[in-house]
Structures are given as C-alpha cells and as structure tokens.
Amino acid sequence: MRDADLIQPETTRLAALKQLGEAFREVGIETAQRDARLLTLDAAGLTHAQLIQAPRERLGDQAAAKLREHVRRRLTREPVARILGEWEFWSLPFTLAPDVLVPRPDSETVVAAALLALKERRNASDGLRVLDLGTGSGCLLVALLTELKGATGVGVDLAPQAVETARFNAARNGVADRAEFTESDWAQAITGQFDLVVSNPPYIANAVIEGLEPEVKQHDPRLALAGGPDGLDAYRAIAQALPGILAPDGVVALEIGSDQAESVPAIYRAAGYAVEGPFADFGARPRAIVLRRT
C-alpha cells in the first residue's frame, strides 16, 4: 500500500508517527495516533521514553522494513494487538493466538468485581479454588492468581490452542505452579467445587456479528463471540453447570454485554442465585455481575 511505502530508512521516528497517524485516520481508525505510536515503538525496538528522547533519529533499514509490514497489516484493519502478538491486561503481558480473544480493558471489571466479592477472604486466600470457564488467553485467571497469592485455579476452554496459550501466559506471569488448564465444553470435564467461578463467555447474538468492526468480526475467534440467537446461550449453560461446581459459600463473577443488564441477571435469579451489580466498565456501561447462592 502506498502509505506503507512512504516509510523509508531515512524517515525519522517523528515523521513516521505523523505519516502513520494520518494514514490510519484516513481509513477511519479511531485510535490512529495510539496505534501509530505502538507500532513504531515495536518496529524500532524502543520504549516510549526513548522515543521522546530522540524523536528525530532515522528509523534505519530494519525498523523501516518492519514498520512497513506493520502498517500494511493495520490498514487492512488487523488489530494492533494481533500485529504485536501480545496485549496488556491488569498491567500484565499476555501472548495471543488466533483462537483467543484480545483481552479488553473492560474485562478488568470482572476481576475487580470478583476481588470485591472476596474481600473478606482476600488476605487469607490459602486454599481458595478458582475456575475460569472459557479461559481464552487466561487473562482472568492469571490476573486473579496474581492478586490471590494463596489461591489455585483451573482454566478450561473448548479450543486446544487457547488452552496452550493460557498455560504459556500463566508461566509468563509467574503463576504456573498454581494454575491448571484443560480442554472442556464449559464444566463438563471438571470435578470438585470452587470458591470462585469467573467467565467472559460469548455473548453477542449471532446475527449481530457481521455488523461489528472489522477488527472483531474478521480477527476474533467466532467461538468466543457467538452467543446464540439471543446472545444468552453461554449463560444458560453456565447456570446449568453451577450447582455441581460452586462451593456452598462460593461466588461467581461474569462479564455481560452492555445491553444485558436485565436479561442475564434474570437467568440466574430464576435459577435461585442472588445477583449483585451490574458493575460498570471504564465507559460507565454495565459489564459484570456477581452471583451467590441463596
């Protein structure tokens, strides 16, 4: 693409930032300047501080070639996280794979809601067992185990590549000795009871997916998006599984769609659970609920 070809070895870092920002804005990318910065930093092997200190340094052959490829991919609306191969969640790094969702900041609401629900037990977390249904990259479970120092956890996913990716991320973030990962269709392969069950299940109605941004519909795994005709299939499956996996005094923290503040809680109230929330995400939208046995 012509915009990518403008990036040459003699292009300065500052000029690259400007050119990329303009190119991304022209195709309607809302995070144009952020994306330009992240891709330039990666291509040049720089920290943000180093970029600020020497903005007029030339890119050089290797960085320019890498940045051109980054730009070509981003202009096709491939997400920056996919291009970089990793993303941050709960201030922790997570390696990505095609079969896992990119961790979203909004999903941190689930972690925060879970920790709040466990506030009475957080400082004495030895023996706590955590289950992450549909673990994906492992971001929810790994983040929780970094906070609950005495807890152990199990992450399950239907996709084998997701299981391997989550296992790698647990090791990368220093909690591999307290985490297990296995293939399972929700909780079918799970035995025993857990003090905390978390999930970011697929919750988008099938018919809605084609109308989503290209970054999502073309690059996120359909298995992690499609929630059935009404977007609620996964919540019903989890409700059926909970009686066998949730400890008597256990809690559940679930991510929900911003339009599901009534429909998802209704499923669990009908199943006999007390519902707390919804808890709002960074955009002040409903994003998580907490469940307890009644």
Rank of each mutant, 00 (worst) to 15 (best):
Ser137Glu: 09
Gly257His: 06
Gly277Lys: 11
Thr95Phe: 02
Pro214Thr: 11
Ala179Thr: 14
Pro221Ala: 04
Ala117Gly: 13
Gln188Glu: 14
Val80Trp: 02
Trp186Val: 15
Thr40Glu: 02
Arg58Met: 12
Arg292Thr: 04
Asn200His: 12
Ala117Trp: 04
Gly192Arg: 07
Val130Pro: 10
Pro160Ala: 04
Leu232Lys: 01
Glu180Met: 09
Tyr235Trp: 00
Gly60Ala: 09
Pro214Gln: 09
Arg122Thr: 13
Thr95Asn: 04
Asn169Gly: 08
Asp35His: 12
Arg167Glu: 05
Tyr203Leu: 06
Leu140Phe: 10
Arg269Val: 12
Asp185Asn: 15
Phe181Trp: 05
Val275Lys: 02
Glu22Asn: 01
Glu108Lys: 02
Ala49Thr: 14
Ala151Glu: 11
Glu120Pro: 03
Gln260Phe: 10
Leu148Ile: 03
Asp42Met: 01
Ile29Gln: 00
Lys66Asp: 10
Ala274Gly: 15
Pro243Tyr: 02
Pro202Thr: 13
Glu10Thr: 12
Leu116Pro: 00
Val208Arg: 14
Val264Ala: 06
Leu225Ile: 00
Leu145Arg: 10
Leu196Glu: 02
Asn123Asp: 13
Ile238Asn: 05
Val154Leu: 15
Leu118Thr: 07
Ala207Asn: 10
Glu213Asp: 13
Leu291Met: 06
Arg72Thr: 09
Val111Gly: 08
Gly283Asn: 15
Thr40Trp: 07
Ala234Met: 11
Asp61Tyr: 07
Arg25Ser: 15
Ala241Phe: 11
Ala274Ile: 13
Glu86Leu: 06
Ala234Ile: 10
Phe279Thr: 09
Asp99Arg: 05
Glu262Asn: 05
Pro248Thr: 08
Arg292Glu: 08
Ala15Leu: 07
Leu115Met: 09
Pro243Ser: 04
Arg56Phe: 07
Gly45Val: 13
Ala226Cys: 02
Ala113Lys: 07
Leu84Arg: 08
Ala253Gly: 11
Val197Gly: 05
Leu148Asp: 06
Gly211Gln: 02
Ala253Trp: 05
Gln33His: 15
Glu88Ser: 14
Ser125Ile: 14
Ala43Asn: 09
Val100Asn: 04
Leu118Asp: 07
Arg293Leu: 15
Gly272Thr: 11
Leu158Ala: 15
Leu196Phe: 01
Val290Thr: 13
Asp99Thr: 07
Gln50Thr: 03
Tyr273Ser: 07
Asp177Lys: 12
Asp259Asn: 04
Arg167Ser: 13
Phe94Cys: 10
Lys149Asn: 05
Glu180Cys: 10
Ile52Asp: 09
Pro9Gly: 12
Pro221Ile: 02
His70Trp: 04
Thr165Ile: 00
Asp230Leu: 03
Thr109Gly: 04
Leu246Arg: 00
Glu210Ala: 12
Ala187Ser: 15
Leu141Phe: 06
Thr40Arg: 03
Gly136Ser: 01
Asp126Ala: 14
Leu223Val: 14
Ala171Arg: 08
Gln62Cys: 01
Gly211His: 07
Glu262Tyr: 05
Asp35Trp: 08
Glu88Trp: 14
Leu67Phe: 05
Pro160Thr: 01
Asp249Lys: 10
Arg122Ala: 13
Gln33Glu: 14
Leu128Asn: 08
Asp220Ala: 01
Asn123Ile: 01
